[in-house]
């Protein structure tokens, strides 16, 4: 049996996505940077609500950002890390993506 023709373009798009994810299969991490504007309560709330971290973990990561200037707040496959960074930007936090060491 043969399926209807005409899905060529969709197919090409899927292959490109696959190609991209194979290229980037190493683990990535999400870094949040300190800034003088975002409130400590807000940053802790974002870590709790977005990542689902406990009160203690969210507070510890927030303090690490505040005191050390940066903190790795999540790690994982590139696609997830990209989503996380975009979400952090949505909340107005300074976040970057980097390859895990």
């Amino acid at each position: 049996m043969i399926s209807a023709a005409g899905s060529t373009l969709t197919q090409a798009g899927t292959d490109l996505d696959l190609h991209r994810s194979v290229l980037h299969s190493r683990p990535y991490q999400v870094v949040v940077w300190n800034d003088p504007v975002n409130l400590m309560s807000y940053v802790a709330w974002v870590f709790r609500s977005y990542f689902g971290y406990s009160r203690e973990k969210a507070h510890r990561l927030m303090l690490q950002v505040h005191r050390e200037g940066r903190s790795v707040v999540a790690a994982g496959p590139r696609e997830k890390a990209e989503r996380d960074v975009t979400a952090m930007h949505g909340y107005g936090l300074q976040a970057t993506l980097e390859e895990a060491e």
Binding site: E82, V85, H89, G92, T96, L97
Partner: peptide, 27 residues
Amino acid sequence: RLLPDASDDPQEAAQFRRLSEASLRES
């Protein structure tokens, strides 16, 4: 500040921006 670079690497940041800035702006 509202639409920051997503990477220290300019190339990586440019690619990320191309793919995601419009949707970040819209949200």
